[in-house]
Design a protein around this nucleic acid. Structure first.
Lengths: 222, 222
DNA sequence: CTGCCATACAGGATTTTTCCGGTATTTGCC
DNA sequence: GGCAAATACCGGAAAAATCCTGTATGGCAG
């Protein structure tokens, strides 16, 4: 673990030829990357990845036999959350893109990507932690807009009463629950109730979850 | 506590005439607000505000004798963090605006505000929780840009090593520290060290503080 | 009037978080 | 080689957060 050495990569794709092609592309990029390993699919990846063999960036296809890209990202998120996934797929369907984004992938590019853009994507992920093109952002925004208006059910905010909203704001501070109770002029046991009620309503299970929810939904400004 | 009744207001300004003028303006707005009380300055406010006498929105000047707007907002933030402050001041200096914004005020308008805009501001704060005009946003962005480049010292990010950055990302999840340790392949006591080190470097004192810092500085995406 | 539901609050137990004061290992550098 | 700084780690204890079950109150619809 010597500081910030050469970023490491791994490739997951069921087509050997395509993997070799990608490796060739990567070698054309004027930057240094160490390729740790290649895998045929998610199952194969599970065998090859380990504590001492984690890539910084994982280039992965979606359509794969046995264990596809979605299942693989979910598994990685649980077991190797520090691995940055760059999806490399022919699939351009908004549904797939948005699904992957929700699963936390750090980039999504088309398989016919040009060397220059691949270099940019890898560099961006290695340094800023993500690479989202305007195309991807566009899909995401579009999907959000759909969710907000037409759909209706999906983005409906849970019903919170005023006191719960007040509590939510104060939960996004470094006050302890006892201090929050004092500022809300209620018993600590009552804020205990607000918290548990919000855990359920907002589908989170910790104060960090509450804070993140509040920020995401604009209850507090950063 | 009957649902969402008429929003309550309070005014803090040392000029009686101006307060009366504002009240008149507010009455012209086609919306209902209850005015709880008026105060001459921060000190006077401290006497008049109480658990059972907190306004939803507090309209406040900056230049006031005895206790000015800045001190007052700081005090409110500590003792009545749920009160939304709308600054109403002649002061248009970027420095003052940015300072107030940093103190968490929910809006900043000029004293020569028109009835229509005042109505919009109050409505926006009562519902969305804030009212920032483009003018204010502009000042803020400008100040941020200054901070980023010229100033240098002010916005310099603390030096975090790679493992600390990794930890910071995982701290923004609902994993416990034990789970985080497992995912980072280190001992729980080590993440204990990362945490304490970041508390100091980032000037926070709880996990919520860490998460909020991380979001604000783009270490995690929402 | 009465039972239901939402809200405010308690006691008590358990887990997590936070804090403190140390130790071993590694790494760069004089 | 040896020293300072950074990193990984430990035991123990105090504080905070989380969870569960249960009570009192008040509004309100049947």
């Amino acid at each position: 673990m010597t500081g910030k050495p050469i970023p490491t990569l791994a490739l997951v794709d069921d087509h050997t030829l395509f993997r070799k092609g990608m490796i060739n592309l990567i070698s054309m990029v004027n930057a240094n990357y160490n390729i740790l390993f290649e895998a045929d699919n998610g199952e194969d990846l599970q065998k090859k990845i380990s504590k001492d063999n984690q890539p910084d960036i994982l280039l992965m296809d979606i359509n794969m036999p046995h264990m596809d890209g979605f299942a693989t990202v979910e598994w990685l998120r649980e077991h190797y959350p520090l691995v940055n996934v760059l999806v490399v797929s022919m699939i351009q369907k908004e549904e797939a893109i948005v699904k992957m984004l929700k699963l936390g992938v750090k980039g999504y590019v088309c398989k016919d990507i040009e060397p220059r853009e691949l270099g940019e994507a890898l560099h961006s992920i290695a340094n800023k932690g993500f690479y989202y093109t305007d195309f991807i952002t566009g899909k995401l925004v579009h999907s959000l807009q759909l969710g907000e208006s037409a759909n209706g059910a999906s983005s409906m905010l849970p019903v919170m009463n005023d006191r719960e909203k007040d509590f939510l704001k104060l939960a996004c501070t470094e006050f302890t629950y006892n201090e929050i109770a004092a500022k809300m002029f209620v018993s600590p046991k009552t804020v205990d109730g607000y918290r548990n009620s919000l855990f359920e309503k907002l589908n989170v299970k910790s104060r960090v979850g509450l804070a993140l929810y509040a920020v995401k939904h604009g209850f507090v400004q950063l």
